[in-house]
């Protein structure tokens, strides 16, 4: 990779860095694991950057890489794709507090608990939906049709709403 490409990569990584944390927060509750996950994402972004051809937006591509790493990590394959050694200090630079955990309201906490109960693919759909992506954008990231996204999201919304109602009833009956 040429110095120009590298400078461009760093610029793009800086611009879209929040994607890494949002995805990491969505898949990882433990702060230490989350740091590892962000490292893995940064490494994979760097390794895959040579193949980025601009046919999709950089943010779409970055979401794909970050979510693929997160799902692999989630499924216990993290160690095999990890090559973290050169990035120890980078992880410190990338470190961020977890405002979502510390400052989140009750609704957000409940939502996070419910998202934690979803499988890795449904979780990807919900996280992308909550981030404000359209069905077409979600379809492009996940690799399914927009119609499939809509169908699955409708089911997930009902499921999460039932989860909310259930937790609400539980709280009401708890003295």
């Amino acid at each position: 990779m040429s110095p120009n490409d590298e400078a461009r990569f760093i610029e793009l990584l800086h611009e879209h860095r929040a994607i890494l944390f949002k995805v990491a927060f969505g898949y990882c509750r433990n702060a230490e694991d989350r740091d590892d996950l962000v490292q893995e994402m940064a490494i994979q972004l760097w390794r895959s950057f040579g193949r980025y051809d601009g046919r999709v937006r950089f943010s779409t591509w970055a979401y794909r890489v970050a979510m693929n790493v997160a799902i692999s990590h989630f499924r216990g394959q993290g160690r095999r794709i990890r090559d973290a050694l050169p990035f120890d200090s980078l992880a410190d630079t990338l470190t961020v507090d977890d405002p979502l955990a510390e400052e989140a309201g009750d609704n957000m906490r409940v939502l996070r608990r419910l998202i934690d109960g979803l499988d890795e693919l449904s979780r990807a759909l919900v996280l992308l939906y909550l981030e404000g992506h359209t069905s077409e954008e979600i379809a492009e990231i996940v690799g399914i049709s927009p119609g499939n996204v809509t169908t699955r999201m409708n089911r997930l919304k009902s499921k999460l709403q039932r989860g909310f109602a259930h937790l609400d009833r539980t709280q009401e009956t708890t003295p």
């Binding site: 994979q44 193949r51 890489v65 693929n68 996940v142 399914i144």
Partner: peptide
Amino acid sequence: DFGLPLLELQ
């Protein structure tokens, strides 16, 4: 290529 759509890469 981790930039592939999720289902394909997984």
